[in-house]
């Protein structure tokens, strides 16, 4: 998970140590963050997640769940 966390930290502009499955994005989860995360997931997992579901994610854990449910 570390490559994904590092990428996500960069996107959310926080230190990677702050991220955990419970980490809530809040307001920072804007369209640009979503777009960036699509690219990140593609890069790290070679998966194309459902965009609507990704937008609905509130926490890091939500994204991780979405990734694990998505077929490669």
């Amino acid at each position: 998970m570390s490559e994904f966390y590092e990428g996500l930290a960069e996107i959310m502009e926080v230190d990677v140590s702050e991220l955990s499955t419970d980490y809530e994005f809040g307001e920072a989860w804007d369209s640009l963050a979503v777009v960036s995360t699509i690219a990140l997931i593609d890069e790290v997992y070679d998966k194309a997640v459902d965009i609507q579901l990704l937008q609905d994610c509130k926490t890091v854990g939500d994204i991780e769940n979405l990734i694990s449910k998505t077929d490669g």
Partner: peptide
């Protein structure tokens, strides 16, 4: 523009 959808399309 739905940037997320365009990104997903482009990568696919």
């Amino acid at each position: 523009m739905d940037g997320a959808a365009i990104m997903a399309f482009t990568l696919a």
